[in-house]
Design a protein around this nucleic acid. Structure first.
Lengths: 207, 207
DNA sequence: GGCTGCGCTAAGCGCTCGCTCACCTTGGGC
DNA sequence: GCCCAAGGTGAGCGAGCGCTTAGCGCAGCC
């Protein structure tokens, strides 16, 4: 269990909060389809058939295709935020906390790449209200990383001229992992996490 | 003119190679639409009406909607590669060349964000042969950046353990600019380019 | 053992998609 | 002044989309 936790960057088997079982199967199918082809290129028939059900079954558990994306995005952002908060609020120096935050955040983007891809790149497919809700979560993600960097600057551990710009760059680096990472590649999520943590420490002058 | 060149990261008014005029207007309209809503969410009617033409006019100049994306992606990648090659082959130390490459590459992604967005994020919408052609160009992009980093390591200017991994991270950082940058934001393309060049030099141990 | 309600399916509605086709307009050559 | 190619339009085709509806099978209760 704890091994699996480490390899995925935090969670054993996700979506356990989604019930009943048929709703979860549909949601998992939607994550895979959205990650592979994108939200707009995915049909409700494709999602249903991946879940082993008829097209109409989707509408028993979800009002629209967009509600599926919203649920996925919401749960994914909650999880991402949880990962960063855990790293941010542990004991230790700012350097240790930043390395932990970047390492686990990157492991999540690499290890749970299908989810991360949907979460990070399908935001624009949401309607205005749903998008506003998610954007608020993203601001909290930004605040969490910025907080660690500010702590490091205050304690003298870090040497950063533009805190907000550096925060943006750190998150940017982590998020883009979801775009290029593939399980067929030469690196494991752990290796990428360790490399990126090291690079980020250099970026803040603590390498 | 040279001012404009600097603000956009390299080019004054692009797409000049696309003729005749109607074909260029359609292509520019497609870039805007694809960048705003994504390839699959864009309709041929939307593209044509942005160009001030009827839906059927598109098919006089392009065989399919996908051919439009292919042309955009090809020209955009050529331009991106050109920017990196120019920086890579200028005279100067590896440190200067890497700062120049990252600075101009980032300025292009920020200043010509609509194009960059399509180029970097709509690759999967291409068919197999077209995608293969673009993937080859991307390998050349990677090689150009890796070359500079290898030069810096060889000359002792850089301290990099994992050259390929660091190359990936540098490109990743630059590319993700196209995802988050907005003209309404607080930073100009020049400012982001300068900040990112500085951060990248730190990543390679030359900050 | 019959009834009820829930989860699901088969069929299909209305719509919009990418794309086509028959026809129209226009500017240059003779 | 007439012709024709090039470049455009209006109308619409077949297909596939998101989503709905009528009804089926079956587990649980009396």
């Amino acid at each position: 269990m704890s091994t699996a936790e480490e390899t995925t960057g935090g969670e054993v088997e996700p979506w356990e909060e989604v019930t009943p079982d048929a709703a979860r199967r549909l949601l998992v199918a939607a994550v895979e389809a959205f990650a592979e082809r994108g939200y707009h290129a995915t049909t409700t028939r494709d999602i249903a058939s991946r879940a082993g059900m008829s097209p109409a079954a989707l509408y028993i558990h979800y009002k629209t295709k967009e509600e599926l994306l919203h649920r996925i995005s919401r749960i994914g952002h909650d999880r991402a935020l949880d990962i960063l908060r855990t790293a941010s609020r542990r004991e230790g120096t700012a350097k240790e906390r930043l390395a932990d935050a970047v390492g686990s955040f990157v492991r999540w983007h690499a290890g749970r790449r299908t989810t991360a891809r949907v979460v990070q790149y399908e935001l624009d497919a949401l309607g205005p209200e749903a998008r506003a809700e998610i954007v608020a979560l993203r601001r909290q993600v930004d605040a969490e990383v910025r907080g660690i960097i500010e702590d490091g600057v205050a304690s003298g551990e870090f040497d950063v001229r533009d805190v907000q710009g550096t925060t943006l760059a750190v998150l940017s680096l982590c998020i883009d992992v979801a775009r290029w990472f593939t399980v067929n590649g030469p690196r494991t999520p752990e290796e990428v996490g360790a490399l990126y943590a090291d690079l980020v420490l250099r970026m803040v002058g603590a390498g």
